[in-house]
Design a protein around this nucleic acid. Structure first.
Length: 961
RNA sequence: GCGAAGGUGGCGGAAUUGGCAGACGCGCUGGCCUUAGGAGCCAGUGCCUUCGGGCGUGCGGGUUCGAAUCCCGCCCUUCGCACCA
């Protein structure tokens, strides 16, 4: 028996080989055939687990492929090294965050080496080093110079546990993304980056990114949240302008109240004295509320009337002003016009607080309804309705009429004649009309609404407690679904614009408003400015000084970096707890001043790091524009979807800002983006002992500590949930190649997939088989050097030869295209099996065996580089696989030989023909061959052939009667 | 609620200008080897079957010689956003 496959014996031999040979070093000056491959750099938080492999092993395989294809590959790695966990560890364990961080970095590097994952380590960067964050600070100053960094007081998201503010993006469902605490709202003076100035370009330029996943682009699009509409100025009774934003200016005539956000600055000024106490109370309550409470969707609307009125500029109506927390200060103008007839939220609010509703848009359905209460009409109406062709139902003596809008007038005049004195009915559809025996009244304005209500109440005591017409109609179930709709439609009850069709309504109204100077077309975005201040120690200090005389003064560029003070103790307030850091002198006037004690959000560090890799040791500038412009945009950027919004949007923003400043000649940093899925694994939860490592779980899913039955969930591997598989153990048991192979084989790389120990063994078995097969053949193929051509081969040989070349094609195309490396590996497994079968045949051509073995080794080397190098060196061709060109497939393999053609009869496969490809590719010959086949003939006996469809190279389909 | 992606054997998944459904791997079954095996090797493995064949890609329709793939209508799952005016 041959030497068994023993990864321990072979892997260590190659671990330093590639590095020593310099295969992964990019030639930075030569961009003729450059490829910038980039993995999102990690936060060094502890140890790598098998789940991380999804990203790094994939990247390593791609890079090895590219190197063999002859690319000059730039493939750097670094550390997103600032951040809260380092600081927390420091506070808990008394170690300096830098020491903690570097210890983790060393561990990560050891694990990369064990995996055979290689980088150009000369370009390593760590964002926590002064040599790096000096330039993060430089970036801040550049943005400040351009007016893109500013300081403002604002309501911020405050995490009480982390003692710091959070960006909107770091608040998930009202909770801190990191620790899960409920986020509070607090007013603080903070630094912001003006990303909103780039909102439109960030949105438009998504079009320039055809090689990004649609999903990611859509998420960014939603996040930016552009909406078009109009800004319209209402006026208070005293003439204060109140600007509102609306996407539905066509509903302006239906505005029956205004709502301001509780924090709106005008509230103070406008509130009537007698309403003040209640308004103040509501505002206090709103401020106290957490995001979670405020955002809970189920919540009933709340709000208070502030005792003031505003004039609707389009029709002069006086409408009440309310405050309510469903209006957000941070979006639009913080004030809305409420059109209850055409906005669901406004409708709920109006119904609850008894505010009138006036319909101003006809529903596109063109359907109207009318309800006739029992006893309100004379006998004979039913017959008349039926005779006139109206549709109605009768229930308990009441009539429910459904009519088309065009029949409205006809219906009204008919029904009016049958109403008993003192009764009425309504027609609810495109507008609401009340039909009395003596008149027809429309609800087309607030005035008319009052009049109709008054008349009804006079006639019918039972409706006297109804506050509005809407409330009255709401009492009739039959009308409810027609009282509010949010669709576009013909404008009604809208003064001069009445009759404007729905598809022109918004545009025409905007024009009309602009002509009169009442309002104008406007666009708003959901995107807010990027809050970058953090009250923490372990981050890049914001390079600003606060001087009593000069105000906020930037630290001069030549004084950078503003170093983090080297202190043994870190307080919870970060730099603000370190007096010797705070005290400084003003760079402008020389007087006493205080340093800004905020550090920057770590997303700032990672928003530009891909530029630094080009010249990581440059002491003169952040990056070398000339070289950066040649190497970027990054050709392929690979990372997790969790960064789809934050990191990627910020990086795009910073790139555009630097482009505008003239530092860059491109304005999108990442040409192609690939988001790999996560590896999941069962996680076990004990209510008392929390997360239990899967290895410790007892019989029947019991907690090893208390015996409680555990809850099992399949979740992304993560240290915090204790459901990780450590690579060290896998490598000790199976070797790194097996882990690499399984990681890439388990499924398409973009999908989330559950880790399986059995699957790992499958990969191991395959490698063992491959090893045995090749080492057995080595003695007889080692010295063979003659090339092989398909012509001289027998049938089995030709089939294998063909398989080889189809495999080369398949693997190459997966690497170059969609990265479905799982199917590439499947193809390599097939080729291996085919080789095994060939070797068991009668005649064996050693030239062909050598050719297959040689290419098999090369093709599999990106996946399993250790075993590939080992076998390659034993094959005796010399050199490394990494300096051997990637195999090219032979075109002839696509055409040569015989093919199998299925024959369908009435849609079912009834025969398979083996035909020379020349016949299979010729439509007529193919058809003839199919009809001549004995199996087919037997099937067709006694039946009439109606039609024959021969698809060259594919199949033959016969239709019989 | 809005938006997107997806639904294929016992499991992960293959197959997309419409052309042999289930590649490859796991698991399972049987056999071999072994003192033993949670190792390895070989064979089988979509379901049903009266062994002719029939049925099968979430469900129901449709287009087509032919549909996992295209069209219409539902159901379910996952993800993102969520009072955004």
């Amino acid at each position: 028996m041959n030497e068994p496959y023993d990864p321990k014996a072979i892997e260590e031999r190659w671990r330093d080989f590639w590095r020593e040979k310099g295969f992964f070093k990019a030639d930075i000056e030569d961009t003729a055939r450059k490829f910038y491959y980039l993995n999102m750099f990690p936060y060094p938080s502890g140890k790598l687990h098998a789940g991380h492999g999804r990203n790094y092993i994939l990247g390593d395989a791609i890079v090895r492929f590219l190197i063999m294809r002859g690319y000059n590959v730039l493939n750097p790695m670094g550390w997103d090294a600032f951040g809260l966990p380092a600081e927390n560890a420091a506070i808990e364990q008394g170690v300096h965050p830098r020491d903690w961080t570097w210890r983790n970095i060393e561990e990560f590097k050891r694990q990369f080496r064990a995996w055979g994952v290689e980088y150009d380590w000369d370009r390593e960067i760590a964002t926590c080093e002064p040599e790096y964050y000096k330039w993060t600070q430089w970036l801040f100053l550049k943005l400040y110079e351009r007016g893109l960094a500013y300081r403002a007081e604002s309501e911020v998201n405050w995490c009480p546990h982390c003692d710091t503010v959070l960006a909107n993006e770091q608040v998930v469902n009202g909770r801190c993304e990191r620790c899960g605490s409920v986020v509070e709202r607090k007013k603080l003076t903070q630094w912001f980056f003006k990303i909103t100035a780039y909102a439109q370009r960030l949105l438009d330029d998504l079009e320039k990114l055809p090689d990004w996943p649609e999903r990611v682009k859509l998420m960014q699009k939603n996040w930016i949240g552009r909406s078009e509409g109009a800004l319209v100025t209402f006026r208070s009774e005293r003439g204060d302008p109140i600007e509102v934003f609306t996407t539905r200016p066509d509903t302006l005539w239906g505005a029956t109240f205004l709502v301001l956000a509780p924090e709106h600055p005008l509230v103070e000024k406008l509130t009537a004295p007698e309403r003040r106490a209640e308004v103040e109370e509501y505002r206090r309550q709103a401020a106290r509320q957490t995001e979670v409470e405020r955002l809970s969707t189920e919540r009933e609307k709340t709000g208070v009337f502030i005792g003031a009125y505003a004039k609707n500029p389009v029709n002069g109506e006086e409408i009440p002003i309310w405050i309510a927390d469903y209006v957000l200060m941070g979006y639009g103008t913080g004030a809305i016009m409420a059109v209850p007839a055409h906005d669901e939220r406004d409708f709920q609010f109006a119904l609850k607080f008894g505010i009138p509703v006036v319909p101003v848009i006809a529903p596109p359905s063109g359907v109207a309804r009318s309800y006739l209460m029992r006893g309100t009409f004379q006998e004979g109406l039913k017959g008349a309705l039926a005779g006139a062709g109206f549709d109605f139902e009768e229930k308990d003596g009441a009539l429910y009429v459904t009519l088309a809008e065009k029949d409205r007038e006809r219906y009204i005049s008919l029904v009016q004649g049958y109403l008993k004195p003192g009764s009425w009915t309504e027609v609810v559809g495109a507008g609401w009309q009340f039909v009395f025996p003596d008149e027809v009244a429309n609800v087309g304005s607030l005035e008319e609404e009052r009049a109709v209500l008054a008349k009804c109440q006079e006639l019918e005591p039972a409706v006297r407690e109804r506050r509005t017409v809407a409330e009255l109609l709401w009492g009739v179930e039959f009308y409810r679904e027609l009282l509010f709709h949010a669709e576009y439609g013909e404008m009604i009850n809208s003064g001069p614009l009445t009759g404007t069709p729905g598809d022109q309504a918004v545009r025409r109204t905007c024009e009309w408003l602009e002509e009169r100077g009442i309002g104008r077309y406007a666009v708003t975005y959901r995107l807010r400015d990027w809050l970058i201040s953090r009250q923490r120690y372990w981050g890049a200090p914001i390079p600003m000084v606060h001087c009593e005389r000069c105000g906020a003064v930037p630290v001069p560029e030549e004084e950078l970096p503003v170093l983090l003070p080297d202190v043994p103790f870190i307080g919870k307030r970060g730099l603000a707890d370190i007096p010797e850091f705070v005290a400084t002198t003003c760079p402008r006037c020389g007087g006493p001043a205080r340093r800004d004690t905020d550090t920057m959000d770590t997303f700032v560090d990672s928003a530009w790091y891909y530029l630094r890799y080009i010249s990581p040791n440059d002491e003169e500038k952040a990056f070398d524009s000339e070289l950066v412009n040649r190497w970027l945009p990054v050709d392929l950027y690979v990372g997790g979807v969790e960064h789809a919004i934050l990191h990627l949007l910020y990086s795009r923003f910073i790139t555009k800002a630097l482009y505008d400043m003239g530092y860059l000649s491109f304005d999108e940093p990442f040409k192609r983006l690939f988001t790999q899925g996560m590896i999941t694994y069962p996680a076990y939860w004990c209510p008392e002992h929390h997360w239990i490592p899967p290895g410790e779980v007892g019989e029947g899913n019991r907690c090893p500590h208390c015996g409680t039955e555990l809850q099992v969930q399949v979740l992304a591997m993560s240290k915090s949930k204790k459901n990780v598989v450590p690579p060290d153990e896998l490598i000790a048991k199976y070797g790194a190649d097996t882990e690499r192979l399984y990681t890439l084989f388990m499924g398409p790389p973009e999908r989330d997939i559950e880790w399986s120990e059995e699957g790992v063994r499958g990969a191991w078995r395959f490698l063992s088989r491959l090893w045995a097969l090749i080492t057995e053949q080595l003695p007889r193929i080692k010295d063979v050097r003659d090339p092989v051509a398909p012509e001289g081969l027998d049938r089995a040989g030709e089939a294998l030869w063909k398989k080889l070349h189809l495999t080369i094609k398949k693997v190459t195309e997966e690497f170059e295209g969609r990265l479905g490396l799982n199917t590439a590996i499947a193809a390599l497994m097939e080729l291996t099996s085919a080789l095994g079968e060939y070797l068991e045949g009668e005649t064996v051509d050693v030239r062909l065996v050598r050719e297959v073995v040689r290419n098999l080794i090369l093709l599999i080397s990106p996946f399993t580089p250790f075993v590939a190098e080992e076998l390659w060196s034993r094959l005796g061709e010399g050199g490394s696989v990494l300096e051997t060109p990637w195999p090219e497939y032979d075109q002839r393999a696509l055409a040569a030989g015989e093919v199998e053609i299925p024959v369908q009869i009435n849609g079912k496969v009834r025969a398979r023909l083996r035909l020379p490809s020349a016949v299979a590719e010729d439509e007529e010959a193919l058809q003839e061959a199919a009809l001549a086949d004995p199996v087919v003939q037997a099937r067709l006996a006694g039946k009439q052939v109606k039609r024959v469809i021969a698809v060259p190279g594919k199949l033959v389909s016969i239709v019989v009667g």
